[in-house]
């Protein structure tokens, strides 16, 4: 018995499981496993603002939360949620730049898998990705529990090494300037001391 489907039916059959999966999911999709791991690994307090727009997560009516999204933003959210494979540029209104970058780099499917092994998220992200350009990769910032979108925030020692390398010319020039100024002040003080030294008049 030959059962044939029209092209439209075939598309519908292919899309149905994805749609069922999408709509069966709870409205809010925060993954606390990653936050918990980052906190535990780094010993720092971390909140949802690492990946989400709102520090309290996607639930609620506030800025960057699902309850406060417009129709266009909800469409963007659905598109971001359907980006199962890596490589799709997404613009989820509940995620920040780092959150969107994760979806683009590894895809939603991989992200869901990683919930079981949140320690592997850093390895799954591109090693050279550094959104805030502070010299510490995004994956490393996730491991360190620091803000991957703030160049002023990172592990202090790693920032020191990265910035020393970045600003070595500034540091060298400052050292030379300080030494030169110091030498100048020394000469000035010596001169002042000579000028103010009490002089003995020659005896007649």
């Amino acid at each position: 018995m030959n059962i044939s489907f029209s092209r439209t039916s075939q598309k519908l059959i292919a899309v149905t499981p994805v749609l069922i999966w999408l709509f069966a999911m709870p409205q809010t999709q925060a993954y606390p496993q990653f936050q918990e791991f980052s906190e535990k690994n780094s010993g720092r307090n971390v909140n949802c603002a690492m990946c989400h727009l709102n520090g309290d997560g996607p639930t609620g009516d506030g800025k960057g939360q699902i309850g406060g999204l417009t129709k266009e933003e909800l469409d963007s959210l659905m598109r971001a949620r359907s980006a199962l494979a890596p490589g799709t540029q997404v613009d989820s209104p509940i995620l920040n730049k780092f959150g969107n970058e994760i979806i683009k780099d590894i895809g939603k499917r991989k992200l869901l898998e990683l919930r079981q092994n949140p320690q592997d998220l850093a390895k799954a992200l591109p090693a050279q990705s550094d959104l805030d350009q502070d010299g510490i990769s995004d994956g490393q910032e996730y491991m360190d529990g620091t803000d991957p979108l703030n160049p002023e925030h990172g592990d202090p020692l790693k920032l020191l090494l990265a910035n020393l390398n970045k600003y070595r010319l500034h540091v060298i020039l400052t050292f030379i300037a300080v030494m030169t100024l110091n030498w100048g002040i020394m000469q000035f003080l010596k001169g002042l001391e000579i000028l103010t030294r009490p002089r003995q008049l020659p005896k007649a």
Binding site: A49, T146, L160
Partner: peptide
């Protein structure tokens, strides 16, 4: 004054390379 010069250099380097707030967890900022 020489000591002040060294202190300035250390302060400048630290300020340039380690933002003071990096010691705090980012949610607090």
């Amino acid at each position: 004054l020489t000591l002040w010069g060294f202190l300035f250099f250390i302060l400048f380097t630290l300020s340039l390379c380690i933002p003071f707030e990096s010691f705090l967890p980012f949610p607090l900022l």
